[in-house]
Each structure stands twice: as structure tokens, then as C-alpha cells.
Design a protein around this nucleic acid. Sequence first.
DNA 1: CGCCCTTGATAATTCGTATTAGCGTATTGA
DNA 2: TCAATACGCTAATACGAATTATCAAGGGCG
Lengths: 345, 345
Amino acid sequence: MTGVSQATVSLVLNGRADSDVRIAPETRDRVLEAIRSTGYVADPIARRLAARRNRILGVFTYEPVFPAGTGDFFHPFLVGIEEGAESLGCDLLLFTSASVVDGRRRIFHEDNRLRLADGCVLLGRSLDRDDLARLVAEEQPFVSVGRRDDAGGPVPYVGADYPVATVAIVERAVAVGHRTLAYVGQGDHPVGPAPQTGLDGQDRPAAPESHADRERGFRAAVAAVGATGIREPVEDRSPADLLDSLLARGVTVAFMEEYADGSAIASVARERGLDIPRDLSIVALGDPTRPAPSDVDFTMFRIPRRQMGWQAVEVLTRLIEGTPGPTQILLDCEQVEGTTLAPPR
Amino acid sequence: MTGVSQATVSLVLNGRADSDVRIAPETRDRVLEAIRSTGYVADPIARRLAARRNRILGVFTYEPVFPAGTGDFFHPFLVGIEEGAESLGCDLLLFTSASVVDGRRRIFHEDNRLRLADGCVLLGRSLDRDDLARLVAEEQPFVSVGRRDDAGGPVPYVGADYPVATVAIVERAVAVGHRTLAYVGQGDHPVGPAPQTGLDGQDRPAAPESHADRERGFRAAVAAVGATGIREPVEDRSPADLLDSLLARGVTVAFMEEYADGSAIASVARERGLDIPRDLSIVALGDPTRPAPSDVDFTMFRIPRRQMGWQAVEVLTRLIEGTPGPTQILLDCEQVEGTTLAPPR
DNA sequence: CGCCCTTGATAATTCGTATTAGCGTATTGA
DNA sequence: TCAATACGCTAATACGAATTATCAAGGGCG
């Protein structure tokens, strides 16, 4: 149309005006006009092949991105990720094609398509360590939402500062007079990343970092004030059983790793005519990750999920572009006053 | 590593075993072994450039994909789309980069990236007609979730059969004795796709197809049985005002285009000591698209949203691959008995 | 007139894969 | 006896843009 070469069109299209690339203004205008009138759009695929950027950010989740029936713990993260991508002019690629093995998606599999994206955001309570190690080893740009232990190298992440938030909330409990505190959560893992072997001799995965971080904060805070810290596992126990155990051991405040477990205990306690928080204070260490009734105004802290998603995208683009800056970020949680923490009787 | 050409690797990689492509089993094994040991994965981008498929399906929404508010009318569609994509081994590309003009995203804009995907699913209550027309004209493979009028050609869609569902529910009302029925919805559009001019002389967009279809069903059913059909617009009116008007006009059953408006009227009616459905039956024509209290067990029908999403992906892949089959599909809605429809006094 | 520099554009190459037309020999069928 | 075909593989090319080396024309200078 303009009697101009493909190279010239490319130069015009990209607004190149370096010292070593010159386009006569008149030619530029002719090309621009042709582009406008034909509605020509450069093929992004070919573009990516030639250049190295795609402006596509991958989102990998171990569960479906659009959960079918949950109380949407992950939703706010995704909102933040979308906001971040939108403000950067990036599209989001959901790896729904990742094949499912043993009930979870796998990042790496025959014909993995990670490289469709410039980089990748990883979402999930616990990430597969082998997958992580491989990402690190292959120098794929990626960011984890949620802190992760090293996997053959430092893992870039944007997480919530559970230790600090937990310490703060434990201190509140101690300040109002509690001396016997319980941490109620999955398993009874010593702190640390290494996989463990259970009594049955089978390998048991380490606690997810998010759980370990809470427990570490709990132990540190309890130790610092010289109070009594008790550990109660939740697996295979009814809320009633748990409640019995807590009361029998003289616990006056329970810190719930999982909000939903707190709801369950509160509900049982109320059925028995117990007074929450007079007879037992209950504190939730974060937002519910499972659907839970919201009729109780828990004393708790909130995970800054949206902000985490947003910042993850920020870190990712830094990694992609090689811009300097922190690649491991912990964000503060918001303390919620609530009504389930009061001085013990 | 194997002393074999790139072409051979490609053939092995794709498991080509046509009559005109032969690879010695031994060579094949050597190549496969090399692939396994190096962890080589073909670059999907280059792949796409050479072949014509990408196994990426685009998802375009006029609003954020992950809505900030809850209530989430669109969520089930996305669940269905994800399920469909997953079962087909496709990834989903969210066009979050689409720039926002006048509060909505635009499909076409400078540097649009539609072609990153093999095809595209469109989601939104009302789609921009110019965008649609252009998609049709450019022969971009796409599917709309929700029926759409022609836009310079037939628009592929997977929609809900609102006319049939509405007719059925109107007939239920007539069967129990109602003779004065009201359709309560936005505006007062004559049926038809053409844009209209309001009293103020300004262009007013046509009713979205989903609304027009309901109203058409309503009118047809009312006419068929010789009952009285009344039209009540909702804009700029309080629920109290609406309720007054309905009762004053002798309406015994109101068909609500929008669930949330039904909730509002029911709530006002209850405050006044009225009996729903004795004093006024209220029927919701579909699931809530805005957050609405769910304390009322409405007589209504449900939009098969998840199934629509799923089938949209099916139709889209048919279009992409040129497989014959219907490209305009209407799915049945599920009638819900509910408790807000009863014989009039 | 010869030389160099500036200007504006292009031919050629690159990215990593898929595809296709052959390569030369040995076997088969007519 | 000869054409056709099976055999396993590779060279060459296409895909659509970005990039680079290069070129031709024109102007200024000694």
C-alpha cells in the first residue's frame, strides 16, 4: 500500500526513533495512515518470537482458578493479580491445561506451556517443592504468592507476615491476663522445612510455610513472656473433643490456625452453654480458607490478599525486566479487634 | 546429542506416524531419551507460529474477570469455561490488558491482542455491537455467552432460553388463577434490536437481548391466554413506589426481570404487613445479577450458567477446527418451585 | 573531482518450530 | 526387465515480526 518494506513498517509501528534509525516524517505518516485504515495489528505471537516479551503473565494454581464451591479464599488474590496486570497492560494466562496428577495440577509435565508467558505467578497453600526447585534451576521468572522456603535457591515471593501478626495477637491475649495459651492447628510439626516421617514410617509433608510461620510466631511470643504454650492438633478430632481437651488442660485462649475450626469450636461451646470469650477466648489466625459461618465476630488478623496479588505482579515484572528491587516481600496483616478475646475468668 | 536433524526431533516430538512419515523405532527411542534427559520442551510460541493452533482460548469480559464485589453473577460461567478448557487441554487467556474506555473494556483498540488466542469467549450482559460486527467481519473465531442479535451476520452463542422459561413460569401463574400480570424491568422497550431515542432526544441503548427475550416470552404467554399484561419500569423508582403502583393497578403477580428488585419489593411488602404471596405473588426471572438478600425462597427459574460456559467452549473449538455443528445454542432453564407464587385472593 | 558524512530506507537474518519435497537403494509387481 | 514403491531421514522453507548491516543519494568540503 505504501510502497515501503516490512522493516520500515515495523520501525514505524514501534515508534523507533533512535539515532541509528531514521524515518522521514512523511513516510511515517503514510505508514500510520495505512495501519489505521486497514486496522492492521501485529501478530503478537510472531512478535514474541522475534522480540523476547509477550506481556503475558501466567497464573498457575494447583486448584481450579475459578473454584466451584468454596468460600473463595483465593479470590482476593486473583483480584489483586488482575488489577496489577491491568495496570501494567499485561494479559493473564491461566494454565488450565496443566494435567492433573494425584488430584493436583502439576506445573511440569510433558508439553508444559509455561513459556507462553513472560513469567508466572504461583498460587496455592503449599507448592510442590520439586516444581519450585526446577523453576529456580531453570531461571524461569516466577513469584510465589505466600512465603516459601528456599528450594535450591531463594524463591521470590510476596507473603503475609504471619510471625509478626501472630506475635502481636498473642501479646494482646497476654496483656489481658491469659497465661495458658493453645495453638490449634494441623499436625504437630516441629518448626522447619524438612519433610518428616510419621509414626507409621510414612513420609509426611512438612507443614506449609504459612502454618509453620504462625506457629513459630506463637512459640516465640509465648516464650518471650514466659507463658504456657500448648499444642493441639486438629486432624481426626471432633470440635467437641478438641474443646474438652482445651478446657481439661486449663487453656484460656485458643489460637486457631484455621478460622473454620474456630467457628466449629465456638459453635459447640455455645451449644453447651459456655460463654465465649468468658469461658474460653478464641482467636483466628487469618481469614477462613474453608467456608465457615460468619456469625461470630472473631478477634483475628486479616491477610492482605488483594495487596499480595498486586505486589506479586510487581515483583514478577521486576524479575522479567531485570529491574533491581526486593524479590521477597512480607506484608503486614491487619489486626481485627473482634469480640472473642477477653480476660480469662 | 543424537546426531539427528531438527526435523526428525519435531517428528518424534509430535508422534507423527503417518504413512508418509517414518522414523525408525531405534532412532525414535534415542530422541525420546535425549528429550527426557534434557527436559527439553518445545517453545509453544514458535510452535504456534509454525502451526496454526495455540490451544489458547481467550476470555473477554467487559468487567474485571475477578469481580471485586461478591454476588458474582459471572462466576459460574467462568467455572464452566474453565472446566471446558481443562477437559480440552487448553489454556485460558484473560484479556486484562484491554484498555478501558468509558468505564468498559474495549475489545478492539490499538495493539489488541486477540490473536494470541485461537478463539475467544465473550462474556457480559450486553456486548458492544460494533465490536461484535467487527469480529464477525474479520472471521475471528468467537462465541458469545448469552444470545446475541445478528451483527452484520449471525453471532455464534450459547444462551439461556429465556422465552421458553418465561412462558412456562407465566403459564404456572395463570394456571393458579392470575389474570393481571406485570413485567417489571428496565425501561419500556418495544421488542427489537434497534437502538432507541429517549424522550430527552438522547440515544438510549437497546435492551440487552437477555431482557428483551424475557419480555418477549412474557408478552407472548400473556397474549396466548388472553390475560392482562402490564409493564412497569424500575429506573429511578423506589421499591415502595413500585409496590404502590402494582397494587393500584390490580396486579396480582409481578415478574421481575432482576432478582434483586424482587427482593427489594418483597422486603417493603413485608414491612407493610403484606403477605407474599397471598397479597402479591412475586416471580424472579433468573438468578440475581446483583447482590441480593437470599432470605426469600423465590419462585423462579435458574440460568444454567456453568453449562453455558462449558458449551461455549465446545462451540468455540468447533469453530476453530471447522467441525460442523450448531453454533447457536439455547439451553433450558431450571424451574424452581419456590414459595412466592400462590393463587390470588 | 574525490572524499566523507548524513539521511532514509531496505535486504537479509534471526527467533524455534512444523512441514514437505526429495535423497539413493532395495524390494515388489507386472 | 522396468516402473513403482517402501525405507528413514534431511535440507529447505514457511510462519510474521524485530533487528542489523548495508546501500544509494545527496550535500558539503578541500
